[in-house]
Design a binder for these strands. Structure first.
Lengths: 249, 249
DNA sequence: GTATTTAACTTGTATAGACAAGATGTTACT
DNA sequence: AGTAACATCTTGTCTATACAAGTTAAATAC
């Protein structure tokens, strides 16, 4: 007969409030989890039990449990039960901006200079990056982005020619490669490798750096469905990558 | 009389499939959005229209639309209607690991050396970082993390003493500050500023660097509810920050 | 003509009932 | 003892109905 205890402990959290019932049910349960009164892998009362304890309909309880599952608080298995989800590796939702938007968001003027734009056959290294066979058709581009006429980023890119066959015909002084590729083949997944590097003399010169200052290098690969669209190397002196995010649990 | 066209175009996507009905409704709608047949800000048929067109119950349509809204595909306004959501600034779900886990995940041995651990009053700069008043009680710590006896990261940290009053009594050779703070005051939000810097001579020495190689510097502030728990500066030579993520739309 | 009320339509939530489907233990049979 | 059928409990989904609440536009009163 744990029902009375269950009623007490859950109802205490749900007491009268203007919020919708399913939200109050969610709150009552996630409070139990957050307070560690209910521990990971521990079983949560079944829908039927919660219905009896809380005096609400099953669909309402179901919605609360379903949403908490989507939020990573609970785990459910049909036929077995509902359990408190184990604490996840912290993950965060960050925002990544494309450089042109970034610059205009700061109220500055952006323009780009195209240093190279050609097509060719993928080297072994490029083929690895794009997940294609060596010798497949690729495009290569090399740009420098300017903020108010000051160079701020070098962008070296290899593009899968099968996915974006018209890449070489674009005018990258009016549209960024990122923006073009995203409209040609909408991005579904991305991978970023961020590291600090010392630029080569040539790169430092192209970026207008007097000495070999530390640069932030981002290697970004983007997928469209199962295909790798492009692999880019972004080199920014003194640039800051800003990552916000709220952690899950 | 756009109903017949609506039926045709949507039913075509929903044709017999073992998937649950609400999933097929979601699929039919998100296909329209993905194919850009329905454009951002454009109106989506009302629940009543979809019910008539698809021959399913309103609750089922409602669930499909509600979940697509949660996923950022649609936007809804009570009393007005449902609309295709404007393309968001690309955001991605990344995973951030704490260094000790990271090292042990690679099968290596981690240990830390505490260079400094004391308490004091917040300087103006520290107070800014923590969102408290100048002079408030804070703890300061300076650690070097080792991977197989090789220094890999310097961690300089300021902690809000009100939130974690027992910080200075911890043994950070057995638990990382991050792990301790997270259990003392669970992280709810985080902010990361990533940049490339050239370490000072002193820092280079502490990290065992012969020359002044470029280092990846991460400034991380973590919140617990409305309070800033800590502000950390992580300095890693040759370290790579790996960010995966699937983009929204 | 203007302001107010009303009607109609939208999404948001809640309920009761039903059946499907997965998991598990119990019973009955060989 | 081993096996198969069954009962029972779980979550998963779908439906029909109902009312609440926000928005908009038309109808009405002045």
């Amino acid at each position: 007969m744990k029902d009375t205890a269950l009623v007490d402990s859950l109802l205490a959290v749900m007491e009268d409030s203007p919020a919708p019932i399913y939200q109050r049910v969610k709150g009552a349960i996630s409070t139990k989890v957050a307070s560690q009164e209910w521990l990971p892998h521990q079983r949560v009362p079944s829908e039927a039990e919660l219905v009896k304890a809380l005096g609400v309909s099953r669909m309402t309880v179901n919605r609360a449990l379903r949403e908490l599952t989507a939020e990573g608080v609970l785990e459910r298995q049909q036929g077995v039960g509902t359990f408190v989800a184990p604490q996840k590796v912290h993950s965060a939702l960050f925002e990544v901006h494309n450089i042109a938007d970034d610059i205009s968001a700061r109220g500055n003027k952006h323009h780009a200079q195209v240093l190279r734009l050609d097509s060719g056959q993928a080297t072994t290294d490029e083929a690895m990056q794009l997940g294609v066979r060596t010798g497949n058709a690729v495009f290569r581009s090399l740009l420098v982005h300017f903020e108010n006429d000051k160079p701020v980023q070098m962008e070296e890119r290899v593009v899968n020619a099968v996915i974006a066959p018209e890449y070489a015909e674009q005018d990258f002084t009016t549209i960024t490669p990122y923006a073009y590729l995203n409209q040609a083949a909408p991005i579904s997944e991305g991978e970023h490798l961020v590291e600090a590097v010392t630029p080569t003399r040539w790169e430092a010169q192209a970026l207008g750096l007097s000495d070999a200052a530390a640069c932030l290098q981002i290697r970004r690969r983007t997928w469209s469905g199962d295909n790798i669209v492009t692999s880019a190397r972004l080199l920014s002196p003194g640039h800051v990558l800003q990552l916000f995010g709220h952690f899950q649990r």
